[in-house]
Computed example of a mutant assay.
Amino acid sequence: MKPTKATLRTGLLVVLLASLCLPATAGSLRERLSQRRAAAGLDAVDTTPATIPPGVRVLRDVPYGGDPAQRMDVYLPAQGTTRAPVIFMVHGGGWARGDKAMRSVVENKVARWVPRGFVLISANYRMLPGTRPIEQARDVARAMAMAQGRAAGWGADRDRFILMGHSAGAHLVGLLAAEPALAYDRGALPWLGTVSLDSAALNVVAIMQGPHLPLYAAAFGDDPAYWRAASPLQQLKARGVPFLAVCSTRRQASCPQARQFATKANGLHMRTQVLGEDLTHRQINEQLGAPGDYTAQVETFLATLDPVVARRLNGRR
């Protein structure tokens, strides 16, 4: 039967409306996916190299093992220093990507703290798929042990290390803080304190028992025994060094897990603080060291760790 003009007009109207709706639907879907990725901490990895300010000297790719990934960069005051406190930084990237020299990892931190007489070390580690998180934590421990052993030659103090990590790196330093034997077994000495920058993997068991993104499955697999062994919350059984958990209030899981960890730690008489910030996952990392209240609050915690750290944060040697 030949279609009427009214039928044709109706069909054209349907097609037109559909074509108008498609971009909005696609845009909405892209927005939801973007929000979900951001909530999970999957910001795009920033591959921009950091700008190093005058007065800072860098030792690149110092080895701590035989694998090409087992390297660290050491940022030193160019004029030299003695018995400097050390901030030992561990990058994130979903246990599978990222790099020690990324701008968001080191630029503001180096600019803020090295001129004040700190040494900042940024370490790479072996990653997925070849190396799983517990062994990655052991890589971090090996790197710290090597750095502590060489500290005097860099004008640093092996007894004044502060362990800091972002995202997956925050999980790794959290695991070492909860189970320091992982570090001591690799030759590391005790450190002053730990700063976890927006980890949403402090309770690996809870993550894996519920709906979770593929990156967690790739990292932690399907063995509940491994989940427990890789989970800072489950491994926390005794008092450790002071712990600061910075978390993004824009993410669903980050601050609740930080508070859960802090509650258990404080019950063990381990001094633990949660600092919620209205920043994205990436901003938690890259804005630390930039002037402002966020950096000031982190420095307030750092100053409680040691009198020398407090003096240098205040610009006094």
Rank of each mutant, 00 (worst) to 15 (best):
residue 247 C to D: 06
residue 304 T to M: 08
residue 133 P to S: 04
residue 240 G to L: 01
residue 273 Q to F: 03
residue 130 G to Y: 01
residue 100 K to R: 15
residue 139 D to H: 12
residue 52 I to Y: 01
residue 237 K to T: 15
residue 15 V to D: 00
residue 73 D to A: 09
residue 149 G to T: 03
residue 152 A to P: 02
residue 152 A to G: 01
residue 115 P to W: 03
residue 284 I to M: 15
residue 15 V to Q: 02
residue 111 A to K: 15
residue 55 G to M: 04
residue 302 L to H: 11
residue 158 R to W: 03
residue 122 S to V: 06
residue 304 T to I: 04
residue 63 P to T: 09
residue 21 C to W: 13
residue 149 G to P: 02
residue 90 V to K: 12
residue 292 G to I: 07
residue 29 L to K: 10
residue 290 A to C: 09
residue 125 Y to S: 06
residue 70 Q to W: 06
residue 30 R to I: 12
residue 288 L to D: 10
residue 59 L to N: 01
residue 143 A to W: 02
residue 7 T to M: 12
residue 100 K to L: 14
residue 316 R to Q: 13
residue 118 F to R: 05
residue 29 L to W: 14
residue 76 L to T: 01
residue 220 F to R: 01
residue 220 F to W: 00
residue 14 V to G: 12
residue 295 T to V: 05
residue 63 P to N: 05
residue 73 D to P: 08
residue 159 D to F: 01
residue 136 Q to R: 11
residue 254 S to Q: 08
residue 289 G to R: 02
residue 264 K to M: 04
residue 85 P to Y: 08
residue 79 Q to M: 01
residue 272 T to Q: 10
residue 266 N to V: 11
residue 311 R to Q: 14
residue 50 A to S: 14
residue 258 A to Y: 08
residue 147 A to E: 07
residue 280 T to G: 13
residue 155 G to T: 10
residue 188 A to P: 08
residue 260 Q to K: 07
residue 177 A to K: 01
residue 19 S to A: 15
residue 32 R to E: 13
residue 185 D to L: 07
residue 207 I to K: 05
residue 114 V to Y: 09
residue 117 G to R: 06
residue 220 F to T: 00
residue 219 A to N: 02
residue 287 Q to D: 14
residue 6 A to G: 09
residue 51 T to F: 00
residue 74 V to Q: 11
residue 292 G to A: 08
residue 209 Q to P: 01
residue 281 H to M: 07
residue 98 G to R: 03
residue 289 G to Q: 10
residue 170 A to D: 11
residue 29 L to D: 00
residue 276 G to Y: 02
residue 14 V to P: 04
residue 249 T to Y: 07
